[in-house]
Design a protein around this nucleic acid. Sequence first.
DNA 1: ATGAAAGCGCTAACAA
DNA 2: TTGTTAGCGCTTTCAT
Lengths: 349, 349
Amino acid sequence: MTQHDRGDHARRPTIKDVARLAGVGVGTASRVLNDMPEVSAASAQAVHNAIEILGYRRNDSARTLRTGATQSIGLLVEDVADPFFSLLNRAVEDEVVRQGSVLLTASSSKSAERARQLILTFCSRRVDGLIITLPEGSDEDYLVLEHTAGVPMVFVDRPPRKVAADVVLTDNRGGARQGVKHLIAGGHRRIACITDRAELYTAQERVAGYQEALTESGNTLDPALVFSSALQQEQIDAVLGRMLADPDPPTAVFAGNNRSAVMVIGAMRRNGVRLAMVAFDDFELADVVEPGITVVAQDPQGMGVTAMNLLQARLQGSQEPLKTVVLETRLIQRGSGEIPASEIRPGRP
Amino acid sequence: MTQHDRGDHARRPTIKDVARLAGVGVGTASRVLNDMPEVSAASAQAVHNAIEILGYRRNDSARTLRTGATQSIGLLVEDVADPFFSLLNRAVEDEVVRQGSVLLTASSSKSAERARQLILTFCSRRVDGLIITLPEGSDEDYLVLEHTAGVPMVFVDRPPRKVAADVVLTDNRGGARQGVKHLIAGGHRRIACITDRAELYTAQERVAGYQEALTESGNTLDPALVFSSALQQEQIDAVLGRMLADPDPPTAVFAGNNRSAVMVIGAMRRNGVRLAMVAFDDFELADVVEPGITVVAQDPQGMGVTAMNLLQARLQGSQEPLKTVVLETRLIQRGSGEIPASEIRPGRP
DNA sequence: ATGAAAGCGCTAACAA
DNA sequence: TTGTTAGCGCTTTCAT
């Protein structure tokens, strides 16, 4: 099989073809392509005409090989279809496009091995830089190698263990504390915490914030009110039921992420109760339900923009000390978090 | 400024370095890199060692320049952060990764000009193929050029006007018809249709399906019950209010997409009524509201997979006649669409 | 099985 | 201002 064998299509014209047709040298053609000043108007015109006639489109692989800059950024997130990461993705894209680069995206699907392969592929493509959400349990040795080999990286959403690079995080702990204190201000004393697997960095931080809020306001921590696990509806239903059977049942719930919030809503319905609730992480339609869901909102766009700015600075050679930017959260009151404890009929119906 | 000037980092090792260190020719090194059979075990081992020691990573730009295949696919959608397109994106990504390629993604933001620039950039990068959701009002001449120049393309969600390529669509018309007939089966006679701008292909098709359902079941079309426009909450509130003031007010609503559905829910609340509703396009949390929202679900993943399969076939030289694949929709009953007309108190409260 | 060498399309240095 | 040319890192003949 020959090299160019895509059906019956002729090979695409090269800069040589353009130069020949325009009656100039390839150097001049290249200068025109790159808008360099030292070209006569006549040559420029001739080249532009030739480009038009031939339908010439520069081969960026060749350009890249020559210049060493690929004008591309790699983005690895957990899942591009996740609402949070899709917003982050979009924000990064806008920055990338603004500077004339392209964006390679990929989803790790929480697999450290898949993440490794994708990142190494990006490195083979010689991306100018990398923005990474690393799955739990990643062996980072290969990253250290690539990083010291000269691939700038910024980590988002969770900090790396070994790589010494810039990081952008949400203030998970502070946000959780804020949300739980909001409930406490409503008179709630017994507040359940339902969240994702305790191995996850973000889940850990949020639970810590929940605990801080309680202890700081003189409440006692009751481990029986904390559920941290992979999220399954049946389980949440049962767990909430058990909590409600307690002699001193919770009047409010702090949901550690939006998926758990959805399940808590279902569990409340099935258990025939209505508790106050604050959820971490905003979601579309949070104001369509009745009552609207009070959330501690993160800022995925801000995370994306910040990450790109940090990366950009490194690309331009910044030697500043490493930065860890922590983004503030925002409490959005929609109703579910403002139900006072006095209005809750605690326990099983 | 020199070519490699990224701070103090040394240039990355090349295949030449690997060959030298391994004590073999660069040809042999290349053969090892590509898992070609005709290499002695000793040489292979030596090369692998050298790779390990040097932290060598193949430069895909050079490879691409030589082989002509970039192993990359470009995806242009309206917005990677849109729930529908983010799922499509993910499905495409999985296919792309499975075949060892990378995915370049971009959002047109409904701008024909931005779409053009992004697509041309992808073409300069010599992507092997392109999956495209074209914004309304695109001038397709440049696409025809690129397409005939040999860039395979598949269009998704909306058909192109000029380019003769494979297409994957949702059965917008049939799905809308199905949804509206579902309402009719519940005894509804007066059904409002609230949807996006009439210029949009999908909106047009869905309104057409709505109309077909009504006429096919012997109902009369009332233009006063159809609202097709850019979506703004205040407007929807007012429009619904007006419809409810009609002497023969609607008892049900067909929402042409999920954003309009959300607004209709708000409008119903503010107008103090509760009508039956079926919405086109599924959304997360559709079952968290009370009642759950009955939807005509599309299949974004199926669209992505189908598009990649079609593209793949063309990449492998398929000369089959052009295909337009129409994906079926699925009615998901969650409650809002099953409220019988007899239970609706029509008109203003 | 392997090394040497040509050449993919481009940019940049040099010469004119 | 311009044309010529070396060479980016790789794959792939062609000899050996």
